[in-house]
Amino acid sequence: MSGGNNFDAFFKSFFNPICSFIERVMGGAEDVTDLAQDVFLKVFERWKEFDSEENAKAFLFISARNLCFDRLRRKQAESNYVSRYLQENEFKTSVFLQEVMRQETFRILYSAIDRLPEQTRQVILLGLDGNSNQEVSKALGVSINTVKTLKKNGYAALREILSKDYLILLLILLGEF
């Protein structure tokens, strides 16, 4: 994968998931963006070597894990700090994979939702926040029937986006930048 622009698109897609990962692992209150910057630097240094997005992504999460691990270790050495992620000198693989899965799933869902037309997107998001159709119609100032139609179309569009091989789709997207 070559070209600096692709890297920028990658950065934008994964910055939030990585910050969220760091925040959960470090237990908040850390300089989350500083650590995230360091993680992306590692990816950037190797960017030309990745032959697929999956490889770049795997390297990204492994770098995030290692940097957090390193930071937690130092924190533990400096003060009496106990972390649920550092157990018996290791960051348990299963716990790590669970955190990755959480961030990846939300990233896929949110980026799919973000590609919907604005009003449809609003309807879906308000619905996900637990609002009834009636409440959504009030909030957006449209009729209940419009809400229902938009919701139906929105979910159909999401299905469309997610049923295709998502990986291929994203690579095309990255190529377009």
């Binding site: 999956e54 992504k57 795997a58 994979l97 990755v100 899965m101 990846e104 799933t105 896929i108 869902l109 799919a112 979910y155 999401l158 299905r159 469309e160 997610l162 049923s163 998502y166 990986l167």
Partner: peptide
């Protein structure tokens, strides 16, 4: 894990 994440995302939108 990335693959399972895609399946879960598809599942949550019924697709």
């Amino acid at each position: 894990t990335f693959k399972i994440s895609r399946l879960v995302a598809a599942d949550l939108t019924g697709s």
